[in-house]
């Protein structure tokens, strides 16, 4: 893990996360992320053979409930938060950009 993260990797990670970085931001974030990841190396000092990972600390395991649909009746209220609405539906740009860019 100890190799510093490259600009190409940061660029790739940003695109996975649906973020775009400007030419100015890329070296800035690359530097910072590299520094932060530097401390991750310290975890290699710890012997974790035969140690189970902890993903959650809740004491509630597999809580079951009936799968019942509930109509909150607040469609209009909900749509008030939508950025673009037409005929009671949320509008988005075209999925495929036909202009070619």
């Amino acid at each position: 893990m100890s190799e510093k993260i490259s600009k190409d990797t940061v660029s790739h990670v940003a695109s996975l996360a649906k973020l775009e970085l400007t030419d100015k931001q890329l070296p800035y974030f690359t530097d910072q992320l590299g520094n932060i990841m530097g401390i991750f190396d310290s975890l290699n000092e710890v012997d974790t053979n035969d140690v189970e990972p902890t993903f959650s600390v809740t004491d509630q395991i597999n809580v079951m409930r009936e799968d019942v649909a509930d109509n909150w009746g607040e469609r209009d209220q909900l749509l008030k938060n939508a950025p673009d609405v037409a005929d009671g539906l949320i509008r988005t740009p075209t999925i495929i950009d036909e202009s070619g860019d």
Binding site: F40, L43, N44, V46, T48, V51, E52, P53, T54, F55
Partner: peptide, 8 residues
Amino acid sequence: KAAEVRTL
């Protein structure tokens, strides 16, 4: 690895 260290 981090989740294992969390256990410890």
